[in-house]
Design a protein around this nucleic acid. Structure first.
Lengths: 243, 243
DNA sequence: TAATCTAACTGGTAATGACCACATCAATGT
DNA sequence: ACATTGATGTGGTCATTACCAGTTAGATTA
């Protein structure tokens, strides 16, 4: 069941086994899974390893513990949609829509004070890459996205690459070895200006959901600042909160 | 430094010491803290204990690790505002505003199908407590809140209690021993109807931020379903995302 | 000089053994 | 009949020991 010399660490293998068991209904919602001492005998791994696997599944929302009682399976509603950092592309896929994009503009600009502070720009740098895109879901306009990146001119992004990769996050990872790992996001409402309404194919003055996000790399440096104006009638934001 | 027989577990004491060190600037942002083996000698606790403390601080956003290099202090921007489950009252306090409320209506109603499903109501139950409140920040209308609770009639909430406690979450915890521990939230835009606009002191048709939240207890049972219509011009939603 | 290797760090995974704190329930006492 | 107690199960904490896996820098080599 668990390969001690496997490619994946043992606690990770065990977590996968348990997660599958939950998905298959082998362990039912609100019912306890075997105790840590029992799992020790079943899977032939030590208790710390088992606890590590369980802690992973708790963080992912699949299990929860009750001291003195046992470890239980979360109800389905709590098993999905943890507030995860996703790109627009991944977001659309999760919603069951085919992601698409239409690049409107791409080029270097002088950053405004707001952009400067959001990108935590050093004084020396006075050029940032700006990309404006119309984002589609199943071919229908979903939002208007404006992204800013700090990139030297010899390491830049071309329109062709952007179209080829589809997902910007995938490109950042493969081309620059920058992995988005954390982000701060704010959401508020806005009203569509005539040019925005035209691009989004809605009436001017229609309500929009405005998202502003600063994304950080694995080194805790700012990667990008992204502003997205979502169509209010087609987009809903999900969050999972814990305490 | 660390009391082995203290009221708090050792890993928790160590986490507090390190968190203070970070707050005081003793450990600077983006700089490494002492290695796990060094901390072992400094604080006279074993490595598992140290790792547990560090993992806690990582989850709270204060530290991050780099395999082979060390454990580093996160930049300030990432140290706060983790997507936490807070009541309206706590939310206002965090924003530096004085929370307030005006109770508009309180009583039992037959739940609609939508409310039924959101509360995961059993067939037998056909009465839920509905509370409608105008929520204030520094005395100014911030949002219109409608909450639904599953409570037997002998264990109910009165208008007086609601006004006395101020925070509903505090009351749930102290009176019913129900601790809100997890929640699913959705956000979308809406336009104010004339009666809503009147209560919120804005123009009819003004944009609003509509939040719908299902809150779960420590036993993973639904506690409440809450709908809040926030004034679009006075409220902004914050989220912290991870991967 | 420049590429390579190696030793010494770092965190990551794992086993073992021990004791504590909380929950439950059956046996015991009143 | 009821309250109490204690055994036994659960997860929570902690120490010790060992080895693996990346990173780095200085010593070695070509």
């Amino acid at each position: 069941m668990i390969d001690p010399n496997g490619y994946l660490p043992r606690y990770y293998q065990l977590a996968n086994i348990l997660r599958e068991g939950i998905a298959e209904g082998k362990f039912a919602a609100l019912q306890p899974i075997p105790s840590e001492r029992e799992l020790e005998k079943i899977y032939r791994v030590s208790r710390p390893t088992i606890r590590q696997a369980i802690e992973l599944l708790i963080r992912q929302g699949y299990l929860y513990r009750e001291h003195g009682r046992g470890t239980y399976v979360s109800p389905q509603k709590l098993q999905k949609g943890i507030s995860e950092l996703t790109s627009f592309t991944e977001d659309m896929k999760q919603r069951g829509l085919v992601p698409g994009q239409k690049i409107l503009e791409i080029g270097y600009v002088r950053p405004s004070d707001k952009i400067r502070s959001r990108l935590e720009l050093p004084e020396t740098c006075d050029q940032v890459l700006r990309i404006e895109r119309l984002r589609l879901g199943d071919g229908i306009p979903m939002g208007l996205q404006t992204s800013y990146y700090i990139l030297p001119e010899d390491q830049t992004i071309t329109r062709e690459e952007l179209e080829e990769y589809g997902s910007t996050y995938k490109m950042l990872q493969e081309k620059f070895h920058l992995i988005p790992t954390e982000a701060d996001e704010t959401l508020e409402v806005a009203l569509a200006t005539p040019p925005e309404a035209d691009l989004l194919q809605i009436e001017p003055g229609s309500p929009l959901l405005l998202s502003e996000r600063t994304t950080y790399s694995q080194y805790r440096r700012v990667i990008e600042f992204v502003k997205i104006l979502y169509r209010g009638d087609r987009y809903r934001y999900f969050a999972k909160l814990t305490r």
